[in-house]
Simulated scan of single mutants.
Amino acid sequence: MIKNVLLTGGTGFIGKHLTDVLLDNGFSVSILSRTDHKDSSLISYYKWDLNKNYIDEQAVLKADYIIHLAGEGIVDKRWTKKRRKAILESRIKPVDLIYTVLEKHKKTLDAFVSASGVGIYGAKTSHKICNEETPPADDFLGKTCEEWEKAADKIGSLGIRTVKIRTGIVLGRDEGFLKHLTPSFKSGFGAVFGTGKQYLPWIHIDDLCKIYLTAIESTTMHGAYNAAVTDNTTNSRLSKTLAKIYGYSIWIPKVPAFVLKIALGKMSEAILTGQRVSSEKIQQTGFQFQFTDLERTLVNCIK
């Protein structure tokens, strides 16, 4: 019998790629969406509305696994008070709705897998290597990820195996993080932000999707896992590598931190800071990264 995976955030960058991977591996997929979509033989769409606390219960009742990817973009808009609230609620409300349905119908799942972020370790730059035992930071990113994971743990309290994927910067072809960078770099105007010393833990979209697949298939996986290559990439290294691929050396001076702070406000923290993270725990499951070389990965994503 074909197992069904329900996705929140299934129409986004990661969700689209993950849907293809799940289908290729013999699963059927259900996607929660605010808009109407036409079903196919292996993909079903169900309506939900977070503002109205509405979810089509059949989506949850049909699922064998649920993967929670939904959430407002961290660097899409300035972090006003309203935006910070939207970022947090867009990650927690979906889990609350799902929890209510599961509890109401005494429904069980083979696993619940939630996205999280390496931002849980905080908006700061240090040489410390953070692992899954590192405490959450006491700042906006740290608290947001902590609350995100606490929401997932509510599902775990129902006796359901729960996995939390702490994701780094996701690199993919013309999407994700690179979507914001490639236009300026392609035009020859690439630059380093701030000191350039801030670390940028990254992962290729293909490897990330394989981690999610491993998380639902491996019954021994539970708890938090860092999903990022441990290679000490900094903003300066990534910028210079990207410029090299486009055939030039960076000639524009570094963009000063104060300029980004004026332009982006508190959101600049997500760009001007970054820590190293360990991928040892996910590798101990037997998972092997396909993309570990930064230059080769960037070439794969932009050419």
Score class of each variant (00 low, 15 high):
125 T>L: 02
125 T>V: 09
125 T>M: 07
127 H>F: 11
127 H>Q: 15
127 H>S: 14
128 K>W: 05
129 I>N: 00
130 C>W: 03
130 C>Y: 06
130 C>H: 11
130 C>M: 14
131 N>Q: 08
131 N>R: 09
131 N>H: 08
133 E>I: 05
133 E>G: 06
133 E>S: 13
133 E>Y: 10
133 E>H: 09
133 E>N: 12
134 T>I: 09
134 T>C: 11
134 T>V: 09
134 T>K: 03
135 P>S: 03
135 P>K: 04
136 P>Y: 14
136 P>D: 07
136 P>I: 02
136 P>A: 14
137 A>S: 15
137 A>T: 06
138 D>S: 11
140 F>N: 02
140 F>A: 05
142 G>R: 03
142 G>D: 03
142 G>C: 06
144 T>I: 13
145 C>I: 00
146 E>D: 14
146 E>G: 01
147 E>T: 13
148 W>H: 02
148 W>K: 05
149 E>K: 08
149 E>V: 04
150 K>S: 12
150 K>E: 14
150 K>D: 13
150 K>V: 12
151 A>D: 11
153 D>S: 13
153 D>C: 09
154 K>V: 06
154 K>Q: 09
154 K>Y: 01
154 K>R: 15
155 I>F: 08
156 G>A: 12
156 G>P: 09
156 G>M: 09
156 G>Q: 07
157 S>V: 00
157 S>K: 15
157 S>P: 02
158 L>C: 13
158 L>T: 13
159 G>A: 13
159 G>Q: 12
160 I>D: 08
160 I>V: 12
161 R>E: 04
162 T>S: 15
162 T>D: 12
162 T>W: 07
163 V>Y: 04
163 V>K: 00
164 K>L: 13
165 I>S: 00
166 R>F: 05
166 R>T: 03
166 R>Y: 02
167 T>E: 01
169 I>G: 01
169 I>E: 08
169 I>V: 12
169 I>H: 10
169 I>F: 09
172 G>N: 08
172 G>I: 05
174 D>A: 14
174 D>W: 14
174 D>G: 11
175 E>V: 08
177 F>L: 04
178 L>M: 07
180 H>N: 11
181 L>P: 01
182 T>G: 00
183 P>A: 07
183 P>E: 01
183 P>M: 06
183 P>F: 02
184 S>R: 00
184 S>H: 05
185 F>D: 06
186 K>Q: 10
186 K>L: 08
